[in-house]
Design a protein around this nucleic acid. Structure first.
Lengths: 344, 344
DNA sequence: TTGTATGCGTTATCAA
DNA sequence: TTGATAACGCATACAA
């Protein structure tokens, strides 16, 4: 189990270590024959260069990382695939890091950049509400993906997302247009000031614009520990039903929540959409195949992912300054929502 | 953008670097006051130790990798979480590598071990039908997870899984017990000789044991390019329905396929389980929340994942020889299946 | 209890 | 085209 080092190879080849290094790293100034000979010995000796030493010395490891918070958010899986492809095309390597739901993704970012000498970071998910000084500590370019930039005082963050406020408004507006006046909402935890807050604010405004008074009793927050999962949607909906607050539509601010909600409603003997209309957000596959299929706001995953990668490389090459790019979501009407008139 | 190093901290604290090192690594021989002071300065200076340097010095880059094939298989997400936790507890770091559906995972493994100096590998997913010489090229211990070992001639592989044959048999036996005699099956592509084959063989045997003749017209294979996704289940079921072959139950060899199937059946005007019973395999969350909830074989994800990690570390430490561990799945009867008598 | 000096395996710089 | 050698940032044996 003894580790073979570059020195062992050098000795075996009767050359200097730097020559071995050159052979391995495709350096131009080396005799092809020497190179071939060395490579052959390397292959025979099953020598493997030590990456820690490499990274320590080398500062140009062309690699970026995707930091994913909340892997259960199935929405991200597609994003990652697309991003990986772009990254690969740029001859960069790409490491995926899952960060715990409760962990701080910025701290993770700082640490991992140090360790792996990354050239850039992509943040996927998480509640992006970090103080500017903290963000400034990230020593490489980064892009916040699927969450609108929260440029808190300092210079703007690079971000790629839909306009959560506008898209959320679209959905609530649609539900109101269907004749619903008692629309319950499941949203992020109370102190969220990220996308959860935006989607909630839009809900409020849309109601207002339809002349519907805002009723706090219809607003249900996830708790701090809840993730955007089926289970959370199910759990919160159970709580809603226990309260016996009357409502004809339920707007779950994620498709996963919406699906959990449908299940809870079904178990309570309620039919979607005949008794209750349910709407989600994101446009994940599961919502399309669910019965009833879930009315949702579809985020343009491909575009978002492609632009995220593109922007990061622009930032790395210094071609561009951090900015927010906003894409349009799409209201996808499916089976889970229904006009209130018909509903009765 | 300059990196803060341990020397900067030492200078700022007016102590030696070793003292700083001691402070960080909870060494016993250090004055608590000094330690506190140093830790404070570290926090203020947003210093992050360089892990490459650490690993280099410790000469033990304690890291393993999880190679995941088919990320859309939601089943794996939970597994990864559990494995990561165990790995973290062992003070190892853990990198996750997605491997393309069509790529060769063993080649990927060999490459990545070389590159990252891994101490072990966990294979998640993929069709494990690789020649023994190929496997032997992997220079570190590895565990094949969720797929039974295919010890092809050589010494046995380390694997952790359920007995796909036995579990699949359980399901088909259950369906037969419900009175179904025309049971369609959606299974892996024709030339699969991994879990797809096992599950199919069990189907055959179970039918036989119930005195039901095997009808090839009821067997539907995925194609080479299909993944275990909702979309595949949907697509194949559409094809089944076009054939107008009569059947009263559909056994989809993955929950994702089952869900896609339910959708297709619904669109054909068929109700599950009243017209057709549908069964899946795996026990993913989505199946539990689906309407109707999916009858399935639940794989003991936690156990599988925990044992996978445990086994890998046993292998790494040389405490154990590669072997197969088999866990029991559980038949979970839910809403998507129904007795044929009642069904009529 | 603390500081100094050495080496981990590599790459890059320089001189040969 | 090569080889010796100095970093890279850290942990630690050893000296103080």
């Amino acid at each position: 189990m003894e580790q073979v080092t570059i020195r062992d190879i050098a000795r075996k080849c009767k050359v200097g270590v730097s020559t071995v290094s050159r052979a391995m790293n495709n350096h131009p100034d080396i005799n092809p024959e020497t190179k071939e000979m060395i490579l052959k010995v390397i292959a025979e000796s099953n020598y493997v260069p030590n990456n820690s030493a490499r990274n320590l010395k080398r500062s140009n490891a062309k690699a970026i990382a995707i930091l994913v918070k909340g892997m259960d958010n199935m929405f991200f899986n597609n994003m990652i695939s697309v991003i990986e492809e772009v990254v690969r095309k740029k001859k960069y390597s790409c490491i995926i890091e899952r960060v715990e739901e409760k962990a701080n993704e910025v701290d993770s970012a700082i640490e991992i950049v140090k360790e792996k000498r990354l050239r850039g970071i992509i943040f996927l998910g998480g509640n992006f509400t970090h103080p500017h000084e903290k963000m400034a500590q990230i020593p490489v370019p980064y892009v916040i993906s699927t969450i609108g930039a929260v440029s808190d005082g300092g210079k703007p963050c690079a971000s790629v997302s839909v306009d959560d406020y506008r898209e959320s408004y679209k959905m609530v507006d649609y539900l109101c247009g269907l004749g619903h006046r008692r629309i319950a909402i499941i949203t992020a935890c109370e102190d969220d000031i990220s996308i959860g807050r935006l989607r909630l604010n839009a809900y409020r405004q849309a109601l207002l614009d339809h002349g519907i008074p805002y009723d706090p009793d219809l607003v249900f927050h996830m708790t701090k520990d809840d993730t955007y999962s089926f289970a959370t949607g199910y759990k919160v909906t159970k709580e809603i039903l226990e309260k016996k607050t009357e409502f004809s539509a339920l707007y779950a601010t994620a498709d996963t929540l919406a699906i959990g909600a449908c299940r809870a409603l079904k178990e309570a003997g309620l039919t979607v959409p005949d008794d209750i209309s349910v709407a989600g957000f994101d446009g994940i596959d599961a919502g399309e195949y669910y019965i009833p299929s879930i009315t949702t706001i579809r985020q343009p995953v491909e575009q978002l992912a492609a632009e995220t990668a593109k922007m990061l490389f622009s930032l790395i090459s210094g071609k561009e300054e951090p900015c927010s790019k906003v894409y349009d979501g799409e209201l996808v009407v499916r089976e889970s929502t229904k006009s209130r008139i018909a509903q009765q």
